[in-house]
Amino acid sequence: MALKDVRVLIVDDEIFFRTVLREIIGKIGFTIVGEAADGDQAVRQYVALRPHIVIMDIYMPEKNGIEATREMLALNKSANVLICSASDYDSDTQAALDVGAKAILKKPFVPKEIYETVKKVLGGK
């Protein structure tokens, strides 16, 4: 799969982090198909846009990233959700992995880490 063919949905309640991710993902060459500011928007956009990768914050209003990940995986057991968090609490990141997130990305973001994680999750394609 070519880099431009990888469709990404960005989910974070903070516009700053969405902007940073948009810039990093654009420079890597992936295609951003949408953005959401909370878990409810994320699930709706996931259904409508069918991205290959969802990069989702844990802590958001309305519905957090763990609940939204659970819903996405209930809709599609092959959903590729990468949870991003500035949290150092292992219980939060472990809870995300327990519901089916494929990986954890730490804030602040490192472009190489995002690229390598997406490549690994997509099977090196």
Rank of each mutant, 00 (worst) to 15 (best):
V121G: 03
F109A: 01
P108M: 01
K120R: 15
G123K: 11
L122K: 08
P111N: 01
K107Y: 00
G100S: 01
K112P: 11
L122V: 14
A96P: 05
L97S: 03
V110D: 10
L105K: 05
V110L: 06
K102N: 09
V118E: 04
A95S: 07
L97D: 02
K125H: 15
D98N: 09
P108C: 02
A103Q: 06
I104G: 04
K106Y: 12
K119C: 15
L97N: 04
A101L: 04
K106L: 09
G100C: 01
K125V: 14
G100N: 00
P108I: 11
G123V: 12
Y115P: 03
E113F: 06
F109Y: 05
L105T: 05
T117I: 15
V118C: 10
I114Q: 06
K125Y: 13
A103D: 03
K107Q: 00
G100R: 00
K120L: 12
E113C: 12
T93S: 15
L105C: 09
K120W: 15
A101R: 03
G123W: 08
Q94H: 11
T117D: 03
Y115H: 13
K102P: 05
G100Q: 02
A96D: 01
K107V: 02
V121N: 05
D92H: 05
D92C: 12
K107R: 03
L122P: 10
P111V: 01
K106I: 08
A103R: 11
E116R: 10
T93K: 15
K125L: 05
K125A: 12
L122A: 09
V110N: 07
T93P: 06
I104V: 13
L97C: 07
G100W: 00
E116A: 07
V110Q: 10
L97Q: 04
T93A: 05
K102W: 09
G124V: 12
D98F: 10
D98E: 14
P108H: 01
Y115E: 14
F109T: 04
V121T: 13
K119R: 14
I104M: 10
A95P: 10
A101T: 02
I104N: 01
L122T: 12
V118P: 05
G124Q: 03
V99G: 09
E113P: 13
A101F: 02
F109C: 04
D98W: 11
L105Q: 12
P111S: 00
I114P: 10
A95L: 11
Q94A: 13
K119L: 12
I114D: 06
E116K: 09
L122Y: 11
I114R: 08
A101M: 02
V121K: 08
E113A: 14
I104L: 08
L105V: 11
K102T: 05
K125R: 11
G100I: 02
Q94F: 09
A96E: 02
I114F: 08
L105M: 07
I104K: 07
K112W: 15
V99A: 04
V121W: 08
D92M: 08
V99E: 03
E116F: 06
K119I: 14
L97F: 10
A95R: 11
A96K: 05
V121S: 08
D92E: 15
K107E: 00
K106S: 15
K102C: 09
F109V: 04
G123Q: 07
V99Q: 04
A95N: 06
T93E: 05
L105W: 12
Q94D: 11
A95H: 06
V99N: 07
I114Y: 04
A95D: 03
T93W: 09
G100T: 01
A96I: 06
A103M: 00
L122Q: 11
T117S: 07
K112E: 08
K106R: 15
